[in-house]
Amino acid sequence: MTQQQLMVNATIAHGLDVIGDRWALLILRDAFLGCTRFEAFRQQSGISKATLTRRLDALIAEGVLQKKAYAANRYDYVLSQKGKRLFASSLLAWQWENQWCKQEPTYPLPPKLEHVNCQHTLEPEAVCSHCNLPIKLNQIQLPLQALNASQQIDAMQSLTKQRRVRSTEKPVAVNESLATISDLIGDRWTLLTLICAFFGVKRYDDFLLHLHIATNILTQRLNHLVEVKVLERKPYQENPVRMEYLLTEKGRSLFTIVMSLRQWVCMEYQVTSELIEPAHKPCGRPLRIEIQCKHCKTAATTKDVTFL
């Protein structure tokens, strides 16, 4: 199987590594909420100065943010057009966090968005761009090649070797909104475990086989996903008792977010069209996700959405 025949190749893996990092996701969150200054980003997320500098530099190098001077040695960090095209994915993340996670941060996410085009409260909806039907995980047909999860995971593990560790330490008095989703898709092992689950992996030994992961790390990630109700344990054998890990509705709803981020990478990094794609069963076409307003059925962009 060539790199082009994978759903996730090295280029996609690199792109996901840049924008899927926990701190990068929180920086992008704050950028969409209007932050532009270094200290504002730092105070909102509780990130250290050194880490914030590295993440800003990485996002600038990838063309997601732009650095603009407003005084001597003072800069604004603003979204580029490339960065603004992540807005659709951020809307899905906002909706997921508001729907599934109890909001008790110091600075919560806006509870409502207004779609200026139709002057209604925005409910972002992920639909197939071909048939306009809502995207559901059970209506996605994975190509036969993609069912070999180990090769997909090998590609994901070809990411840069920077080590990511899910932090259990929460800074005091910082904006924790979107922290749940950033912990899920911003931690490499958690994301890989989720992708395995999307591919139909259910049992501990199969996760271990596909991920080539230390048992203590896998146990920690699976326990975390069960704790936040993304996965649930169910017995499939009684003597001895054996458990399998199944996606909950909350877990299945993460699929469109992960796939929309993948789609953004494919477009922005001009990934070859030979890359295999999952199909949308209702229309039989390759999966193309469009985020639209559920009320007026038009695309939602940064220009026509107001945070309330």
Rank of each mutant, 00 (worst) to 15 (best):
Y107S: 11
H115Q: 02
C118I: 01
I276N: 06
T190V: 10
Y236V: 14
K112Q: 15
Q3Y: 10
Q95N: 09
N216A: 05
T298M: 11
L33E: 15
N239Q: 15
L56H: 07
L261Q: 13
I217G: 02
L86W: 03
C296L: 05
F199I: 03
Q5V: 03
Y245R: 13
C35V: 10
T168P: 06
S90M: 09
S48A: 11
K297V: 02
W94V: 00
P105S: 15
T193E: 03
V165W: 10
K281A: 05
R285N: 13
N148Y: 08
W100V: 02
Q43E: 14
L109E: 02
P278R: 07
N216H: 12
P278D: 09
Q263P: 05
R42Y: 02
H14T: 00
G46L: 04
M243C: 11
G83D: 08
I60P: 11
E62V: 08
M1K: 14
Q162V: 09
K161L: 12
E169S: 06
I153H: 06
R29A: 00
S273E: 15
E238T: 13
I60H: 13
R233H: 08
A10D: 01
S182E: 00
M243I: 11
H120S: 09
R54M: 09
S158K: 13
E169T: 11
T302N: 05
D183P: 03
P110L: 07
A58N: 06
Q152H: 08
F199S: 09
V116E: 12
E232S: 10
R163G: 00
W94Y: 13
S48T: 07
Q263A: 09
A40F: 00
T2I: 01
S80C: 09
P124W: 14
T53W: 04
A197D: 07
E104G: 01
C131F: 11
A155E: 04
H14M: 10
D21H: 11
C118P: 01
F199C: 13
K234F: 14
L91H: 03
H280W: 08
N216T: 03
P278T: 00
K202C: 15
K170Q: 13
T298V: 05
V271G: 12
E249D: 03
N132P: 04
R55S: 10
Y236S: 09
S48W: 01
T301M: 04
F38G: 02
T256N: 01
N98V: 06
Q66C: 08
R203Y: 08
T302I: 10
A50F: 03
I60Y: 11
K234E: 15
T298C: 14
T306R: 12
P143S: 12
L208D: 02
P111L: 10
T121P: 07
A214F: 06
Q44P: 00
K229G: 02
L16Q: 06
A61N: 07
F207P: 07
